[in-house]
Amino acid sequence: MSDFSLPGFDLSAFVRATLAEDLGAEGDITSLAVIPADARFEGVMDSRDAIIVAGLPIAEAFFRALDPEMEIEILAEEGAAVPAGADLMRLSGNARAMLTAERSALNTVQHLAGIATMTRQYVDALAGGATLLDTRKTIPGLRVLEKYATRMGGATNHRMGLWDAAMIKDNHVAVAGSVAEAARRAVAAGIKDIIVEVDHIEQIEPALGAGATHLLLDNMNVEQLRASVELVAGRVPTEASGGVTLETIGAIGTTGVTYVSVGRLTQSAPAADIGLDFALA
């Protein structure tokens, strides 16, 4: 068993809850009816697409939860780029256990590898002009895993939740009355990291004067981003956000912004095409 762990993520609890959802009260009735209890399978998990690998140690945990003695060899490193047809994992063990764990294991790897693969596409398109950030647009309950997958793809995590940085957006400004007043309230509350979203270049100086430590430049075009970066002049990090695509991120990265954040990394990444083929041992 690998020593895979993530801060804030309970792998054992995740595996138990996921298997419980799939098994229900009756268990895997198909395998119980069709597969002899002592039957053994050998299997190979492989990728039908070129992908960035993410989630194999989690897949391993699903299989070991049902057959602790299963022989498992992980064949690709997390974060590695592998071609279509690459073998990812080799297994040998109880056939019922393999069939029961198969869908949970594949769902997880397909989802995380899909996120990592899309993330790498954005990193490559950005071409080092800025640092790619993910967002909080994650499936409830899967944030730690999905943000792990973006790291495997080469991105840097934005804030993990509402607790680790203030982010003042338009609705906060509407209630506070102005960007400056909202930022001042965050400063008065003793918050160290204060991200302020600005929609117009005229909001930049009031936000900085009130204590913003990071500016999110929302839905600005390339010319507006360049002008904003010039005005900020390195006083705080700048982040381009809103409507960023593979076609536009390269130009955005040339504007001098520190970061570019992309919600679709976790919100819209397609699942990777990964399969698992079994044979009697």
Score class of each variant (00 low, 15 high):
Asp67Glu: 07
Thr100Glu: 06
Met70Lys: 01
Arg90Asp: 00
Ala101Cys: 13
Leu91Ser: 04
Thr108Asp: 02
Val82Ile: 12
Gln110Lys: 07
Met118Ala: 15
Glu71Cys: 00
Arg103Ala: 07
Val123Gln: 09
Gly114Val: 05
Ile115Arg: 06
Ala116Gly: 13
Asp124Met: 15
Val123Ala: 11
Arg96Pro: 10
Thr100Asn: 05
Ala130Cys: 12
Ile74Gln: 01
Asn94Ala: 05
Asn107Leu: 08
Ala86Gln: 05
Ser92Leu: 08
Gly93Lys: 05
Ala97Ser: 15
Ala97Asn: 13
Thr131Val: 15
Ala81His: 13
Leu88Lys: 04
Ala86Phe: 05
Gly129Val: 05
Leu112Trp: 02
Ser92Asp: 09
Leu91Ile: 04
Ala116Phe: 11
Leu75Gly: 10
Ala76Asn: 05
Glu73Ile: 11
Leu75Lys: 11
Gly129Ser: 06
Asn94Met: 03
Ala127Gly: 09
Arg96Ser: 05
Ala116Asn: 12
Glu78Asp: 10
Leu106Gln: 02
Gly93Asp: 01
Met98Tyr: 05
Asp67Gln: 02
Leu132Gly: 13
Thr108Ile: 04
Asp124Ile: 14
Ala125Lys: 12
Ser104Val: 02
His111Met: 11
Thr117Ile: 15
Ala80Thr: 07
Val109Gln: 04
Ala101Gly: 14
Gly85Ser: 10
Pro68Asp: 03
Leu112Thr: 01
Pro83Arg: 06
Gly79Glu: 10
Ala130Ile: 11
Leu66Asn: 07
Ala80Asp: 08
Gly128Phe: 01
Ile74Thr: 07
Thr108Cys: 09
Asp124Lys: 14
Ser104Asn: 05
Ala97Cys: 15
